[in-house]
């Protein structure tokens, strides 16, 4: 049964899974070979987080669903990821803007989740926070280079930030599943992450000589299964082979 704890593990796992799928699209397309390695590596870290979290959600649920049943047999309305991670990659600046926004969020989240009263979530966070520290650093270095590089890179970086900015707010919104867990010390209350996240991201933009994007109407819905049109295509591609052979072992 979908308890708040299952829903919470799914939300964290789906964020990681969907972003891993997006970053995997960069492989063999990156601006230089070092970035093929880096983006594949970040995707692998996220995929590892997703597998552990989905497995845990399946165990808690007790309905016999493993990581693959959850990844491949749920439809988009059952995915609980934030909209940010399902956005198309865009150019390298859009991807790096999203990486900065998301990795800075994930870093603050996992840093606090290490103290969760749920031993599994605490252990996942303990490992993931080290990985995400690198992801945040990687995105930071690129936002600095692109923001303070050439006129073209600056223009693209500004546009990239504007593209992803409306989707940042959802990361800090409380939702029903999380609210039920915060009091028990299982989950991190999303609104508490906003201040440290803002402080970090503003620091990076200031160093890059970039203005904060103008406020835009926030977009949300992912945590309730209301996604963008993009997620359906991402899942269609990810799921089709697995679903074409029901019951097969790979």
């Amino acid at each position: 049964m979908t308890t708040p704890r299952v829903a919470y593990a799914l939300a964290l796992g789906d964020d990681a899974l969907v972003l891993a799928q997006r970053l995997g699209e960069w492989v063999a397309r990156a601006p230089e070979l070092e970035e093929d390695v880096a983006l594949a590596n970040i995707a692998l870290d996220l995929l590892g987080q997703a597998r552990t979290l989905l497995r845990y959600a399946g165990d808690l649920e007790g309905a016999g669903r493993d990581e693959d049943a959850l990844a491949y047999w749920r439809d988009d309305r059952d995915f609980r990821n934030a909209l940010l991670v399902e956005l198309p990659n865009g150019d390298f600046a859009v991807t790096m803007a999203r990486q900065l926004v998301f990795a800075a969020y994930q870093y603050e989240l996992y840093d606090r989740l290490r103290a969760s009263s749920d031993d599994t979530l605490a252990a996942v966070a303990g490992k993931a926070v080290k990985e995400v520290h690198y992801h945040r650093d990687h995105a930071t270095q690129w936002v600095l280079r692109l923001g303070d590089g050439t006129d073209e890179s600056r223009r693209r970086m500004v546009a990239g930030l504007a593209t992803v900015w409306p989707y940042a707010d959802e990361l800090f919104q409380p939702d029903d599943a999380t609210a039920a867990l915060v009091a028990d010390g299982v989950a991190v209350d999303p609104p508490t992450l906003r201040e440290p996240w803002t402080s970090y991201v503003e620091g990076v933009l200031a160093e890059a000589g970039l203005e904060l994007p103008e406020a835009a109407a926030p977009r949300s819905g992912g945590r309730r299964g209301l996604h963008t049109e993009h997620l359906g295509f991402l899942l269609a591609e990810m799921q089709h082979l697995h679903r074409s052979h029901p019951g097969a072992t790979w």
């Binding site: 799928q21 995997g24 990810m238 052979h245």
Partner: peptide, 11 residues
């Protein structure tokens, strides 16, 4: 990569 039939194979 995008179509690997299990998460383990994708990794």
């Amino acid at each position: 990569i995008s179509r690997a039939p299990s998460l383990r194979r994708k990794a």
